[in-house]
């Protein structure tokens, strides 16, 4: 239990990912799937940022001329990894939305069941 509180961030990460995953798989509305996907991705980003966090550290920008102290500066590595992940996320989201629009042009619906019914005809 202590561990659970100590790692509250991770619990939130897991909850966010569960929410995102559930809506990617179970939601029938395409836009909702896209939003779920984005939530899933932000959950992972939160995870990486959390593991790279340092208690009481400053932002990773050096000031002045004194030699940098490793303990006092936040970890830049996880941050740049997640910059990449964010950009990949928005690219994927844009692509998903474009596809959704195209599908809407065909079927006048965002509902997966309705689209499948339409296709079967």
């Amino acid at each position: 239990m202590e561990n659970l509180i100590a790692n509250f961030n991770y619990v939130i990460v897991v909850i966010l990912m569960m929410i995102g995953l559930w809506s990617m798989l179970a939601q029938k509305n395409l836009i909702k799937k896209c939003i779920g996907m984005a939530i899933f991705q932000t959950g992972i980003i939160l995870f990486f940022i959390s593991i790279g966090a340092k208690r009481g550290a400053k932002v990773p920008i050096l000031t002045g001329d004194e030699a940098p102290v490793v303990e006092q500066l936040a970890n830049p590595l996880t941050q740049i990894l997640m910059l990449t992940a964010i950009v990949v996320g928005v690219a994927t989201l844009g692509m998903a939305l474009a596809l959704a629009q195209k599908i809407y042009r065909q079927h006048a619906s965002f509902d997966e069941d309705e689209i499948l019914e339409n296709q079967r005809k």
């Binding site: 980003i45 940022i49 790279g52 996880t78 941050q79």
Partner: peptide
């Protein structure tokens, strides 16, 4: 994220 020092993110 800003709170965790990840300002760029």
């Amino acid at each position: 994220w800003a709170g965790m020092g990840a300002v760029d993110v």
